[in-house]
Design a binder for these strands. Structure first.
Lengths: 208, 208
DNA sequence: AAAAATATCCTGTTTTCAGGGGAGAAATAT
DNA sequence: ATATTTCTCCCCTGAAAACAGGATATTTTT
């Protein structure tokens, strides 16, 4: 059996070196290289085909989820294993949605990292305990955040930037009463009484 | 000349191993141990006295700034060098305020890390370029946040919770027109046109 | 004691909110 | 393939709230 070739994409030297060390004693795994940004990752993949790509979410030139989508679309046999520190809950889902087969956190032990790599290599999914927990929590908190239509998001953004209904109507080339309806629907969806509360919740959840 | 003894406190195995590797080739530096939480850090320090403590901000049992304060208070000769990933701007100031002599980011190169350690060991301060930049930006953004009076803060909080002027007036036992003036002053101070924009900025700056 | 900041109040005008209703297009379910 | 729901857009009326501009007392600072 050949060694599992692992390629690491992370812009933190410390993390790359750390992963290299954590994996070096595992006879089934081979560290096949690293990249510190999306561009160099893609050029590496043109000439090499690692089995597993350990991909950090926060990269300087592109976010990890986008890169993950690119990779899995262009190289369907590649398996991506997401990587991040804890306080980035929402990223986990985003990464998985874009084709990652698993997710480990940067506080993973040597054993967990090896296990995750082998699981994903075997075609299974792997989610670290904390990552799975975060997903559940994120789902719960997102459940009571309503789904907005494209138009509603536009209107919400314009409201939050201080535009009045007549101004928004002009900018979107619709009637004022239409904008007013969108605004009312936003209030209803968020279950709030007025604009102030609406914007507070939207802002606190990163929607504006 | 003795080697500079460096002790690392970080709850990410990958980072600890990475730092160990990055430092192992520097003949002036010796990796003297590591801890993954505040408690084990303090117990290590009871028996050992490293020259430099590389201290991550986010620890499981305590935040880095608190630990930093404890360390510098109890062991005045110890020099702390803060450590974090980028997106934690505010932490940098907090760490420095609590006695850290410098700050490096986790994307530091081998050279930068060695330099930072040597600078701090020599009694100088060391701030990585990005850390210094972040400090400036943080200062700037706080500078143009207006100072609010007690009453204005109260009114702002009530507005953001969805209360109307009549309700706020009732709650504060003043007339509606008074509340209205406070609200107008808030709009003027923040230089915004209406409540929506006001709450957005307030929320984005953690005021509500 | 003067100046500045803070808190209070009044009067109109504009904007938002509440409560209705309806129509065509697109996505989903049967 | 058809029915149904969801999405997007449109309209009206009246009440409530927010905004603009101006004014006056009361603290705090200087």
């Amino acid at each position: 059996m050949n060694k599992i070739r692992v390629f690491v994409v992370d812009d933190h030297h410390m993390v790359i070196e750390g992963i290299r060390v954590l994996l070096q004693d595992d006879p089934d795994i081979e560290f096949s290289g690293h990249a510190s940004h999306a561009a160099s990752c893609m050029s590496f993949l043109e000439k090499n085909s690692p089995d597993i790509i350990l991909l950090d979410f926060s990269l300087p030139d592109k976010n990890g989820a986008e890169l993950c989508a690119e990779i899995t679309q262009k190289y369907p046999t590649a398996r991506v294993l997401g990587l991040s520190t804890f306080n980035q809950q929402s990223y986990i889902r985003s990464m998985l949605d874009h084709g990652a087969m698993g997710y480990v956190l940067k506080n993973a032990t040597r054993q967990e990292l090896s296990l995750a790599i082998k699981q994903v290599y075997s075609g299974n999914r792997y989610l670290s305990f904390e990552a799975a927990k975060m997903l559940r929590e994120a789902n719960q908190s997102k459940d009571h955040l309503p789904a907005l239509t494209r138009r509603e998001k536009e209107v919400l953004a314009l409201i939050s930037s201080g535009k009045t209904n007549p101004e928004i109507a002009g900018q979107l080339s619709v009637s004022v009463t239409t904008v007013d309806t969108h605004r009312k629907n936003l209030l209803a969806k968020f279950n709030v009484r007025n604009t102030a509360e609406l914007i507070k919740i939207a802002a606190q959840n990163g929607l504006v």
